[in-house]
């Protein structure tokens, strides 16, 4: 370790969290009027915006049409000002294309696409500030946006990352922890059925520890789920209250 202690002897991490603790999550639904669904999400300093259009008729080439389910179209982009060094291309490089594919895969599995044959659902996600766990924040934001758009899903999709440092699994890695080069795992989970929609791991981790790291990540996912569910319920209450006011007036 190059001078940086990622986990202190007392069991605290660089930003003062315990090993299984998440960063602060703040979220809002329905941030844009034009889109069918939208959400804003903050996990610590990682901030993401997600927008959903659809289900609508297939745009562009009709060859993409699927006769038995909807096409999920995703785009992941990072704002040029989101990282320490200014990014030249907001999207289109190898990493963001990969991220786009992962998002698409996650939501194809979670959305009940067979309800909308010959349709298209667009999910656009943008990272405004990158501070670790970009994929996870994007998935969580997109989940809220899809719910806001009223598209039926099997379950919430909750994502969280996990690492493994000094024999301890860490949940929800920050940028500093990610950059240290230790193992990192990203997990997208359907919390009610414990099904894994996407699993991704990088760097080196001994097989024997995999179990514990996946456990830590899925626990973090369930914690995220609790927060997301609360956000949705609050939002719904807010909206119904507004409609109720209008109805009585």
């Amino acid at each position: 370790m190059a001078g940086l202690e990622l986990l202190s002897d007392q069991g605290y991490r660089v930003d003062g969290r315990k090993s299984g603790e998440l960063r602060k999550i703040q979220a809002r639904m329905g941030v844009f009027a034009q889109a069918d669904g939208s959400a804003y999400m903050e996990q610590g300093n990682t901030k993401a915006l997600a927008v959903v259009y659809g289900p609508h008729e297939i745009r562009g080439s009709r060859a993409k049409t699927l006769h038995d389910r909807a096409v999920v179209n995703c785009q992941y982009s990072m704002a040029t000002f989101s990282t320490g060094e200014r990014k030249r291309r907001p999207h289109g490089d190898r990493t963001s294309t990969e991220m786009t594919m992962h998002l698409k895969q996650t939501f194809e599995a979670a959305i009940l696409t067979q309800l909308y044959p010959r349709c298209q659902i667009d999910i656009y996600v943008q990272i405004l500030q990158a501070d670790g766990g970009n994929y996870c924040t994007c998935v969580n934001a997109a989940t809220l946006a899809v719910i806001d758009a009223g598209i039926p899903m099997r379950d919430y999709v909750c994502a969280s990352s996990a690492g493994f440092i000094e024999d301890t699994p860490l949940a929800d890695l920050s940028y500093v922890e990610e950059a240290s080069g230790g193992p990192q795992l990203a997990l997208a989970l359907l919390p009610k059925s414990d099904q894994i929609a996407l699993l991704e791991m990088n760097s080196r981790l001994h097989e024997d520890h995999l179990d514990r790291v996946i456990d830590a990540a899925s626990k973090a996912c369930k914690d995220v789920y609790a927060v997301l569910d609360q956000v949705v319920r609050d939002h719904l209450q807010e909206v119904t209250a507004l409609i109720g006011d209008r109805g009585s007036a």
Binding site: P183, L185, L198, M201, E207
Partner: peptide, 8 residues
């Protein structure tokens, strides 16, 4: 037996 990548 060190896992280097997992991808589903």
């Amino acid at each position: 037996r060190e896992i280097c990548t997992i991808q589903s």
